[in-house]
């Protein structure tokens, strides 16, 4: 190589390096993302699925047969038709957290789920999707809890979480759920959301009911939130504004929750709660566990955040007995 060639190539290489450096500098964002803009950037935010003009409605139906109590509970607050219209696309978020049998009541009861799916389809829903991101292996959870079979036999569609089911979300005004993976795929195209959860004791939060049930929509290493259990439940309630919630207090897990394990952890409390106000539903659920709303900080936090009321008696409340 001649001296001339060497100098020429050196100049070219220098220009290339300078160009690459300039391009990198131009693309570099020294400030990082603006927290206020995160929810509208690549993040997804769940829309409000509630029916605003209905206001706070709640029914408490006593009885042993879940099919009858949920049916009567829905009728008591205006009928399923008030919530599910023709061609609605419904998502039902169940609690399928554990691969345990239905008799342990650690998961949503399959018979109750079947009944709700059936009612939605009869009301004209064009599709009903059932989902959860369980603690244990999803396939085992849906199979052994009986939920998978209930979904299939009732004519709904089961959506198991996969890697591509998640999208990053930031809940507006939240401190914990920021850029966090959300089980989003089941929400795509959906315009109504129903949460169905059992009433359970919970070692960390004191209780697991409808607000805690949204925990199953988070992905990633969500167990880190257990250190801030009351705040994360509050933010979950901020994240999901459902069309209605169904709290199954037919059999309550009184001790050793949320997994239980023994039939002796359970008590027949024979109550079905159907509500448009998830805070009110949990407030009543607390009483089934022998607690007051004040014993469960997440209920008061959710009330203070304007997400509902712990004073469920102040709602349009209907109490009836089924059968």
């Amino acid at each position: 190589m001649s001296r001339r060639d060497f100098l020429s190539r050196s100049v070219k290489a220098g220009v290339l390096v300078a160009a690459a450096g300039s391009l990198s500098y131009w693309l570099y964002d020294g400030k990082g993302p603006d927290p206020a803009s995160q929810s509208s950037g690549d993040n997804v935010v769940l829309p409000d699925f509630s029916i605003g003009d209905l206001g706070g409605r709640m029914s408490i139906i006593t009885g042993e047969d879940r099919g009858k109590t949920v049916d009567l509970g829905l009728k008591a607050i205006g009928g399923i038709e008030r919530f599910i219209r023709k061609n609605d696309r419904v998502l039902i978020k169940v609690n399928a957290a554990f691969a345990t049998p239905p008799i342990l009541s650690a998961t949503t009861n399959p018979q109750l789920l079947s009944e709700v799916v059936d009612l939605c389809l009869k009301a004209g829903a064009s599709s009903v999707v059932v989902t959860d991101n369980p603690i244990n292996d999803p396939q085992s959870c849906f199979a052994l809890s009986g939920i998978g079979e209930a979904v299939r036999s009732a004519g709904a569609k089961l959506m198991l979480p996969t890697g591509s089911s998640f999208a990053s979300t930031t809940v507006p005004k939240a401190k914990l759920i920021r850029d966090w993976p959300l089980l989003y795929a089941p929400f795509e195209g959906v315009n109504k959301v129903i949460g169905i959860a059992p009433v359970k004791d919970h070692h960390r939060s004191g209780a697991s009911m409808v607000m805690k049930n949204w925990y199953g929509l988070l992905g990633g290493r969500r167990n880190i939130f257990h250190q801030n259990i009351n705040d994360i439940i509050l933010e979950l309630a901020m994240m999901v504004k459902p069309t209605l919630v169904i709290l199954d207090g037919t059999t309550t897990m009184m001790t050793n929750g949320p997994t239980g394990g023994s039939l002796s952890d359970l008590k027949q409390t024979n109550c079905m709660i159907v509500s448009t106000d998830q805070v009110a539903a949990d407030a009543f659920g607390a009483s089934l566990l022998g607690k007051k709303p004040a014993d469960l900080p997440f209920i008061l936090k959710a009330q203070d955040a304007g997400l509902g009321t712990a004073d469920y008696e102040s709602l349009k409340l209907v109490r009836e007995r089924a059968g």
Partner: peptide, 8 residues
């Protein structure tokens, strides 16, 4: 906690 959630 992947197995027993909050009871861990």
């Amino acid at each position: 906690s992947d197995k027993i959630d909050g009871k861990a």
